[in-house]
Every structure is written in structure tokens, then in C-alpha cells.
Simulated assay, not measured.
Amino acid sequence: MNTNLHIITGNKGFVGINLIKYLNQNGKNTKGVSRTPILEELSYDTLNIEKLNQSKSFIHLAGKAHDLKKTSDDSEYYKVNTELTKSLFDQFLQSDCEVFIYMSSVKAAADEVEGLLTEEVKPNPVTVYGKSKLAAETYILAQEIPDNKRVYILRPCMIHGPNNKGNLNLLYSFVSKGIPYPFGKYENKRSFVSVDNLCFVINELIENTNIASGIYNIADDESLSTNQLVSIIGDVVNKQAKIVNVPKGLVKLIAKIGDVLPLPINSERLQKLTENYEVSNLKIKKAMQKNLPLSAEKGLQKTIASF
């Protein structure tokens, strides 16, 4: 076994690109697996037990992302997020590869959070995306793991990083264009995770044989309100962030109109911007016995500066 080779699916995605760069900088060799391989990459067809025998870890990032436009066929989620994962995990179990890391999501546990989301919560996903991720988790957990292998299921919250705006895009456009942010009346707390912190955790999971197999939430240490987020964006772009306290009743009415007419805000976006979604990272930090390299604010500043 080549203890310095690490196979990664979804290597062309945002997390994959960052992870390969991070692992390479930390002296590891990586090989990508994708549907349409280029150069030295593997395809799902050419990935086999023999290739896995040569690697120390198998990091499965590939998946079908949550489709906010709701145009995807439900079966596609199960085909990619569940069945592909099951097939790859079976190959891992038959190989000499030592570490399997599956990139799941907090959405496999809960779509709405009251209080703090921990790994002990009884999963109750609402969306097909969350259900397909949970089905893969359930399959992995049902298999017997040999003593010489370690298996990690990661549930990251909203991942961000340089050049990946995600849900920050709307807030960024508010502040950068000088448009007042109208939802100041809403007090909420949300967890984020910077791609730097996520890559740090994955590297630790590969190297630290003392970290027990299992499910781990991945989040930055601090949760932030959307109002704080707007202020951070203002600081980074050197513009005074204007936060306006529009009455909640009026905001909801505008959002309902946005469900019908093409306004920048609708009910779903309003919920995303103002809901509470706090995720505990205590289990992974206790297992690593290390602090994360970036604070939530520093990570967000880095992301926003790249826009």
C-alpha cells in the first residue's frame, strides 16, 4: 500500500479543488476520480480494488447538490448520493485502503434546527437531497468495519471559501451596491464552515489514527447572525452596511409577492437569510484535540475579499 496516495471523488468541485491543493501542500499525493477524467485522473469505471489497494485514504466528495430550483428528478439524488456511495464503499471494504471519508451534510440530519444541532439528534431530513444522503450514511453504518480501517461520515454546514459565494451572493450584492439590508428586525444565529477549516479536519482524520470512526458535524467555532454577516461584508468592501428594521409583517408580504413575481426576495430566500441553524463542532474538536485554524469571521472575510 502506498501510504501517501489519497483518492478523491468530486475532485473538480469547489471542495475537491481546495482539498487537493491543501493535501498536496501537506506532502500528500492525490488522484482524482471523475465522470469525465482528464490526464492522470481515474474514472468511476477504471477505479477498482487494485487502485484502492495502493492508497491510504478514499475521500468521497462527489454528489448531487441540493437543487434550489427544484428541477431535478428525485431518482437522480438516490442514484448519485446513495447508490454510487454504496458501490464505492463496498470497494473500499474489499481493498487494503485504510481510511474512508464520506462527505454527507447537516441536511441529512435536519432541515430546521432548534437550539444546537449535535450528532446525537435523530435524523429527520425533509428534502430528497437530505434523505438520499442519510440513506448512504445508513448503509455505511450498517456494515462491519474491519479493525484496521477507519470510516468517517462528515456533516458540514454551509461551506464557503474564496470564489464560492453560495448563499452569501445575495448579501454581497446588497452591500456592494449600497442597497439597504431590510431584515434587521430578525435576530438569528447561523453556523458556517470555511473550506480551509474543512480541509484541515480531513487532513487530521487521515493522519490521526486515534480518531474513532463515526459521524462528525463540521462547523466553524462561532455562529453569526445575518446582521453580523452584513456588517462583515461592509467592512471588507469598505462600504457602510445599511441595516434597516422593516416590520416583519411587511417583509413577509413582500416575500409572498416575490413567490409570484421575479423579486430579489421570496419566502424561501427570506427563510434562508433569517432562520436559526446552529451546528455544534465539539465532537470533532474533542476527537482531534486541536483547534481549527480560522475563526468564523476570519474565514468569511477571506471569502468575501475574493469576490
Rank of each mutant, 00 (worst) to 15 (best):
S72N: 09
E120K: 14
E50Q: 11
C157M: 01
I140K: 02
V244L: 12
Y22C: 00
Y216K: 02
A241T: 01
G299R: 02
T36R: 15
I17V: 13
Q301N: 11
Q271K: 14
Y186F: 15
S95W: 09
E120W: 03
D73Q: 11
T36A: 11
K56Q: 11
F89A: 00
K12Q: 13
H60Q: 09
Y186G: 02
V80W: 03
K28F: 12
K248V: 07
K56A: 00
E112W: 04
Y181E: 01
I59Q: 01
H66W: 03
F58L: 13
I7V: 13
N291Q: 14
H60T: 10
T274V: 01
L93S: 03
K242M: 14
L116V: 11
V113G: 07
A65F: 03
P182H: 08
G130F: 04
G178S: 05
T71A: 10
I206Y: 00
L205W: 03
G115A: 11
Q25A: 10
V106Y: 04
R35H: 09
E187V: 07
I153D: 01
S87D: 13
K122Y: 09
S55L: 06
L23D: 02
N18E: 13
Q301C: 12
T209E: 15
L134I: 08
L263K: 11
P162F: 10
E278D: 10
S87C: 11
A287C: 06
G166D: 05
V113C: 04
E204N: 10
A305H: 10
K290E: 05
L294D: 00
K286C: 08
A296T: 15
D111R: 11
